[in-house]
Design a protein around this nucleic acid. Structure first.
Length: 342
DNA sequence: ATGGCGGCTATGTTTACGTCA
DNA sequence: ACTGACGTAAACATAGCCGCC
């Protein structure tokens, strides 16, 4: 049984839900049981890896490593006079005026009537969204949004797209033009995302420069990427828990059935129940009495004939009763010692 | 100590775009 | 070729947290 995450985030194939929600009870998570589950022989290794990686991640976060300059990607674009990659990207190339603005760290747009920026401002008039803050660049309609695009990024996008769409003469009014990132750009961002899931401002600027994008675009891409990763991980977790639940239900059903059979056997032929004492074991973790077949083996051992301690020869129910009911809620119970799913 | 401010992230929503029947 | 449904991803909106002053 293999559960994998395939969204370019293979570094974290499986994250235990409990680890991710250390302060939430299983009930809050909607699980209805408190267990640490183990599926497949590799789960411990995976968790160890994840813990190790998480530690690394924490270390990264603590030191805020600026890894970008050291990154070596399949292609390392040469720089043009703007300090911007001159590699030709198929789409979404920021026009020179925007590139300059990026290179100058989102410089305030020139108001010179003859400059390219002036036409840019004209485009702003076309593309400013109605009722969203006006031409000042602020998109905070309700005052709750403190991000007011003071760097003008949000409008660069419309400008660049407008320039690229001038040929088709499409007047889009209040609609925003959205451009797909090129494969190279996406791949580069993915590589960077593998290195670190968040960017500090320096890294953001460096990435934007290298990819010929605006810092805001890089920022948004990382936001969306994190969201996608989380969504995917949630789906994986849900599927994982669903399978665990199914397995545990089946195990519970099987054990109840086994218990019934034992009781029936005991009732019908009490003298044949005198069996060696060694067949009864105590689970070291949950301190519950269990038979050998369940305490040391796997749930796949369906045909095991559970035995009852021979010391209970008297057939006294109070002493010979074997509680095989699944011990949900036992805090010490660690199913990974009992369950192995194939 | 406290409040305002700016920067950041997480999360949810909107919307443009690509694909496919 | 055209079209509508649908999925995806870029962009946006909002709330909350944190550090700084």
């Amino acid at each position: 049984m293999e559960l994998g995450l395939t969204l370019g985030d293979s570094s974290k194939p499986l994250i235990g839900l409990m680890e991710k929600h250390p302060h939430q009870t299983s009930k809050e998570l909607g699980l209805g049981f408190t267990t640490t589950l183990s599926i497949g022989p590799n789960i411990t290794t995976q968790i160890d890896q994840l813990q190790h990686e998480e530690q690394n991640t924490r270390t990264e976060n603590l030191h805020q490593l600026d890894l970008l300059p050291q990154l070596s990607f399949p292609w390392n674009p040469p720089q043009n006079e703007f300090g911007v990659s001159s590699r030709s990207l198929e789409v979404n190339v920021v026009p020179p005026v925007t590139a300059v603005a990026v290179a100058e760290d989102e410089a305030v747009l020139s108001s010179s009537p003859n400059s390219a920026a002036s036409s840019f401002q004209m485009d702003l008039c076309i593309y400013s969204r109605g009722g969203s803050g006006g031409g000042g660049g602020s998109l905070s309609g309700s005052g709750g949004n403190k991000r007011d695009f003071s760097d003008g990024e949000g409008y660069d996008q419309r400008n660049s797209s407008r320039v690229s769409d001038e040929d088709d003469n499409s007047v889009l009014g209040n609609t925003r033009k959205k451009l797909r990132l090129s494969k190279d750009q996406s791949a580069f961002l993915e590589e960077s995302f593998k290195e670190h899931h968040t960017l500090n401002p320096k890294q953001k600027l460096a990435l934007a420069k290298q990819l010929n994008l605006r810092p805001r675009q890089v920022e948004v891409w990382f936001q969306n990427r994190r969201a996608r990763t989380k969504l995917k991980q949630t789906e994986v977790d849900c599927e994982y828990l669903k399978r665990c639940c199914e397995t545990l239900t089946e195990e519970n059903r099987r054990l109840h059935k086994e218990l019934q059979e034992l009781r029936a056997l005991k009732t019908s032929n009490p003298f044949n129940m005198q069996l060696p004492a060694t067949t009864l074991t105590m689970c070291p973790s949950c301190e519950r009495v269990a038979t050998n077949s369940t305490a040391t083996s796997s749930v796949t051992n369906n045909t095991s004939a559970a035995t009852i301690n021979a010391s209970n020869k008297t057939s006294d129910d109070s002493t010979s009763k074997v509680d095989i009911g699944f011990p949900f809620g036992k805090s010490k119970f660690q199913p990974q010692q009992h369950l192995e799913l194939n």
